[in-house]
Each structure stands twice: as structure tokens, then as C-alpha cells.
Design a protein around this nucleic acid. Structure first.
Length: 104
DNA sequence: AGATTGACGACGC
DNA sequence: TGCGTCGCCAATC
């Protein structure tokens, strides 16, 4: 990645998301000032892998995308934190949505 | 080195 | 309000 800071910030945001809350890739990218990097956020997560709490980071649809195995793992974690997940999708995503810009 | 895909988002109809 | 299409940067083939 040409912008290590971006990846680092993504990690910060992901780790900064409150328990029981979720955010979207676009929200993070936008909060970083690079809304066009929406896809890169997901890629950054994949690059970071397990060291990044990507369980709270989902797409604009509130769906857990990525590796099927990873989805199940993150889904369980979200449910454990109090987030209702149905069919690999966050229930009441709109209500549980956490805006990084609001915190930043 | 070039082309394609990808954990997405926003705009258009 | 819902579905479809186009665009973005980076990594991988």
C-alpha cells in the first residue's frame, strides 16, 4: 500500500468502534478523507488480517463480506457483543451504525 | 509490464 | 423506494 498511514488509521477506527456497534468501509474511508478508497479499506483489512478487529467493520449493506469462515467467526463475535446478526447481515444496521466522523 | 478482480460506494433510472 | 450500472485504488494473476 502506498499509504501506510491509511492502513494504520483503518486499524485505529476499527479498534475504536464501540462494543455493540458497527461501521462501514465507506464511512471509514470518508472519515479519512478518501471516500474513493472504499474498496481499499476492505483490502487493508484483509492485509492486516487477524490483528485487526474487522468484526465491527462491514459494508454499506451491513453485511459481513469476505471469507465464509471469517464471516461466521465475526458474526459470532458480533452476537457476543450484543449485535444481532441474521444471515451474515447486521440486524438494525442503520441503528447500530457508528459514524467514525462523529468520534473523530 | 499489462490485464483482471476485489471484504465497496455513489449515482442514475 | 428498489434495482442496475459506473467508477476508484491496490493487489494478484
Amino acid at each position: 500500500m502506498t499509504d501506510p498511514d491509511f492502513n494504520k488509521l483503518v486499524y485505529e477506527i476499527a479498534s475504536l468502534v464501540p462494543k455493540g456497534r458497527v461501521t462501514s468501509y465507506g464511512a471509514i474511508a470518508k472519515a479519512l478523507g478518501m471516500a474513493n478508497y472504499s474498496r481499499m479499506v476492505g483490502h487493508a483489512m484483509g492485509v492486516c488480517g487477524k490483528k485487526v478487529p474487522a468484526q465491527r467493520v462491514v459494508n454499506s449493506q451491513g453485511q459481513l463480506t469476505g471469507e465464509p469462515s471469517g464471516i461466521a467467526a465475526r458474526k459470532k463475535l458480533l452476537e457476543k457483543e450484543g449485535v444481532e446478526v441474521k444471515n451474515d447481515k447486521v440486524v438494525n444496521f442503520r441503528k447500530l451504525f457508528w459514524d467514525p466522523s462523529s468520534e473523530l
